[in-house]
Deep mutational scan, measured.
Amino acid sequence: MKATFQVPSITCNHCVDKIEKFVGEIEGVSFIDVSVEKKSVVVEFDAPATQDLIKEALLDAGQEVV
Rank of each mutant, 00 (worst) to 15 (best):
N13V: 15
S40T: 14
G24P: 00
A61C: 14
N13H: 14
N13M: 14
S9F: 13
V16E: 03
Q51E: 14
V34I: 09
F31K: 13
Q63W: 14
L53N: 05
S9I: 05
V16I: 09
M1P: 03
E20D: 05
A3Q: 06
G24D: 02
I32D: 02
D33G: 10
D17G: 08
V42C: 07
F31W: 13
E44H: 14
D33L: 13
F22N: 05
P48T: 00
V29W: 04
V42E: 07
Q51S: 11
K18G: 03
M1T: 08
I10Q: 03
V36H: 04
G62K: 05
I10V: 07
F22A: 12
V36W: 08
S30H: 11
P48W: 04
D52G: 08
I32V: 11
K39M: 09
G24S: 11
A47Q: 07
Q6P: 02
Q63P: 04
G28Q: 01
K18Y: 06
V29K: 00
A57K: 07
I26Y: 02
E44N: 09
A47C: 09
F5E: 01
E64G: 06
G24R: 12
L58P: 03
K18S: 07
V66T: 10
E64A: 08
E20W: 14
V65C: 15
D17P: 06
Q63K: 07
A57D: 01
E25F: 08
E27G: 06
E56K: 15
K2S: 09
F45H: 00
T4A: 07
A61S: 06
G24I: 06
C12G: 14
D60M: 14
A49F: 02
A57M: 04
N13Q: 15
D46S: 14
G62Q: 06
G24L: 10
C15R: 06
K2C: 13
E25P: 05
V65A: 06
L53T: 07
Q51A: 14
Q6L: 14
M1H: 12
T50Y: 04
A47H: 12
S35Q: 08
K39S: 07
H14V: 15
K2E: 05
K2L: 08
E56H: 14
E44V: 14
D60R: 15
V41D: 02
A61R: 02
V41G: 02
I19W: 03
V29H: 01
D33S: 13
A57P: 00
T11V: 12
K21L: 08
A61H: 04
K2I: 12
E25Q: 14
S30V: 13
